[in-house]
Design a protein around this nucleic acid. Structure first.
Length: 373
DNA sequence: CGGATTGATATG
DNA sequence: CATATCAATCCG
């Protein structure tokens, strides 16, 4: 059956014959003959002309690449349009930047036990526009202020303690995307910790991270890509974040690879990282980026299958940053307040934390004695 | 570890 | 005077 309601069938010869049959009944045999002759004539003409064009192309269109280059050089007299999607190199990471969205396309890192060491901290680094990005295409801090979104590192500060230059490079907004606060400090933070932890087991950990805009089906049943933009520069808020992790043994042999796509929203402790694992080719199709080129994929197993992809647990996580807060506390009151968090959250301090607490208290007692004397 | 906010000070 | 900069403080 021919569905005339669909426009694509209008030009179908079968449909055209149907129209012609209608014409016969309507206007009689003479008219039918006339119409048929006209149709056949037009059809023959069209076939002839298509054949002619094909023949012409075959005979004349095989211009050399030099000729094409010469012609296109003329066409591009006013310059070749640039989107700034070159690879940009930094002290401890590499990335491609998206000038339209004002966020990275992808950010690549290489982690080892050794290059995770160092004393550089975020205290001496500042979020700022990347001086290597054209001013007209950069994000600014003001875009993020009061936007409801935090500035989320793709190459995290915690991976760049090796020296101050690496630390500062990671604070350029070319390495930053608008990220949900809770996601950034929570789930994504734990994923980054897991990556660092992998260096204890694997000699080399290669990571590619970045934003993803995932299409979503709306009420009309059609799919759309929808994302918020923030600030004067209209920085794009990714719907998701992706991370690809490749691990190697001490011989440089690839041991496992996994790709993850995490929604840019709060994710609780009840979600296992495996829930967000996706197949790499699928991710690459969504992104339109061949993320990993030098890898024999069929021979490499899933990281989650090999290593488990277990993130740090809730209690362990909370204890960890209570320790961090305790270390940075500079008044007795602050120490006591942080310590009281343990009771509130029903956490039991480990030996390290107890020692740290005692050490801090002694520190302040000594300071007070020094003042008094 | 991941972040923001505020207030004092310096600067044009 | 308005806007950078930095130190201190805070939260998950």
């Amino acid at each position: 059956m021919v569905k005339v309601s669909k426009s694509k069938y209008i030009t179908n010869p079968v449909y055209l014959r149907g129209v012609l049959m209608g014409a016969i009944l309507a206007v009689g045999a003479n008219a039918w003959l006339y119409a048929l002759q006209g149709y056949q004539k037009r059809k023959e003409e069209e076939e002839r002309s298509v054949k002619t064009i094909k023949q012409t192309l075959l005979n004349t269109a095989d211009s050399t690449s030099e000729e094409k280059l010469e012609r296109c050089s003329a066409i591009l007299k006013y310059g070749i349009a640039e989107d700034g999607r070159m690879v940009r190199y930094y002290t401890n990471h590499a990335l491609v930047y998206n000038q339209q969205m004002r966020i990275p396309v992808w950010v690549a890192e290489h982690l080892t036990k050794e290059n995770l060491q160092g004393k550089s901290t975020r205290r001496f680094a500042t979020f700022m526009p990347d001086p290597a990005v054209d001013e007209e295409f950069t994000a600014e801090n003001s875009d993020y202020w009061k936007s409801g979104w935090s500035r989320g590192h793709m190459s995290p500060a915690g991976n760049n303690k090796i020296n101050p230059a690496a630390m500062q490079d990671s604070f350029y907004l070319s390495n930053v995307v608008p990220q949900n606060y809770e996601n950034n400090a929570g789930y994504w933070n734990r994923l980054e910790m897991y990556c660092r932890d992998l260096t204890k087991k694997y000699s080399n950990v290669y990571i590619i991270s970045g934003p993803a805009m995932i299409p979503e089906e709306e009420e009309d049943g059609k799919k759309y890509v929808k994302y918020q933009v923030i600030g004067e520069n209209e920085v794009a808020v990714p719907t998701h974040l992706f991370k690809v992790i490749i691990v190697e043994d001490k011989h440089g042999a690839t041991k496992a690879v996994s790709a993850f796509v995490v929604p840019n929203k709060p994710i609780g402790f009840e979600h296992h990282l495996k829930e967000f694992e996706v197949d790499l080719p699928g991710l690459e199709r969504v992104l339109g980026i061949k993320l990993v080129k030098n890898l024999d994929r069929d021979k490499v197993e899933s990281l989650c299958k090999v290593d488990g992809c277990k993130l740090i647990g809730k209690k362990e996580f909370e204890l960890y940053f209570i320790g961090r807060k305790l270390e940075s506390a500079n008044t007795r009151e602050r120490v006591e307040k942080v310590w009281s968090e343990l009771e509130e959250k029903k956490l039991k301090p480990d030996r390290y934390l107890k020692k740290l607490y005692q050490k801090k208290l002694e520190e302040f007692e000594e300071r007070e004695r020094a003042k008094g004397s």
